[in-house]
């Protein structure tokens, strides 16, 4: 199991298109992936559910923590972290 903390830098945060892209990418991994909003001290939620991600209310400059557990956990974390830190481009 591995963890990683990232700061969200894009303007809309994890909403709208970025939220959908994040979930689409997360859903492609076999590992169980969870995410929480450190800035609002949220609980851990399923990174593969668009509803859970939108409920997190992640805005610009919020810090999120990712946790993955499974065979492809390292690739999952690296890929999702790259997406967040690349401004969703």
């Amino acid at each position: 199991m591995i963890n990683s903390i990232s700061k969200v830098i894009n303007d809309v945060g994890l909403h709208a298109r970025p939220a959908a892209e994040f979930v689409k990418l997360a859903s492609g991994f076999q590992a169980s992936i969870k995410v929480r909003n450190l800035t609002s001290a949220s609980a851990w939620v399923d990174a593969k559910s668009i509803i859970s991600i939108l409920m997190l209310g992640v805005s610009k400059d919020h810090e999120v923590e990712l946790m993955a557990d499974g065979l492809d956990e390292e690739l999952a974390i690296t890929t999702l972290r790259n997406l967040i830190e690349s401004n969703f481009k």
Binding site: A16, R17, V23, K24, I50, I51
Partner: peptide
């Protein structure tokens, strides 16, 4: 209970629901 076919197109709907 939410049945969602195309996740990308339903972000606005889910935000309304929230």
């Amino acid at each position: 209970l939410l049945a969602i076919k195309e996740r990308e197109k339903q972000v606005a709907m889910i935000q309304q629901l929230i």
